[in-house]
């Protein structure tokens, strides 16, 4: 093996491992690095539906400054977003649009249900409001409050970051079959009524 500048003689690397090199190394698993970087550049999609969006804007503004977590860019395009913050009440008419935005987001993607209206319908227990956005999309973290303050939303975001980094969300998704507890069964093969006999006519 040649001598690589900056690293040293790598001829004995197969026998001694990294010990014989001139410089020190920090090793990590690729999975941990990926989770670490995912947690620290979690771009949210704008899905402000009601008054919770005001608090979401306040969280991104200077006094609370979501840029400290690397998530100051609220993406209008779902293809560039990792996290959907459903802020506000979801009406029955908005639910298919919400699901479409969620489907357009790239994997891996996460959802924070911000506020009681998005989480469970809140005080709007009526025919017009979806009673919990987790009937439509899989929700990772619920932020309570009406509306949640910026610190409540940041607590939810930090909870989500911790879960991304510990891999708990990935495990839960496998148990949950990927979302919203909606299981689509493949259509059963239709048994033909009679075997087709060729050449009988």
């Amino acid at each position: 093996m040649p001598r690589i500048p900056g690293i040293g003689d790598t001829s004995a690397i197969l026998d001694d491992g990294l010990e014989g090199l001139e410089h020190n190394f920090v090793t990590a698993r690729v999975e941990d690095l990926v989770k670490w970087s995912r947690a620290r550049s979690c771009w949210p999609a704008t899905f402000g539906l009601a008054c919770c969006a005001i608090e979401m804007m306040a969280t991104g503004a200077a006094h609370y400054d979501l840029a400290r977590y690397g998530m100051e860019v609220f993406r209008a395009s779902p293809r560039q977003a990792d996290l959907m913050i459903v802020a506000g009440r979801v009406s029955q008419k908005m639910a298919p649009i919400l699901r479409q935005i969620y489907d357009q987001m790239m994997e891996p993607k996460w959802v924070i249900s911000m506020g009681v209206c998005a989480s469970s319908g809140g005080m709007f227990n009526n025919y017009a409001i979806v009673q919990g956005v987790d009937q439509v999309v899989p929700v990772d973290v619920y932020a309570p409050g009406c509306p949640p303050g910026p610190e409540t939303l940041m607590h939810a975001i930090l909870t989500l970051h911790g879960n991304i980094q510990s891999g708990e969300l990935t495990r839960r998704r496998e148990a949950n079959a990927g979302g919203a507890a909606i299981h689509v069964e493949p259509p059963a093969p239709v048994p033909s009524a009679q075997p087709v006999e060729l050449g009988s006519r």
Partner: peptide, 12 residues
């Protein structure tokens, strides 16, 4: 206290 969030509904 207003800084709390849940990861499932039963905690709430």
């Amino acid at each position: 206290l207003f800084e709390f969030s849940f990861t499932n509904r039963s905690d709430a």
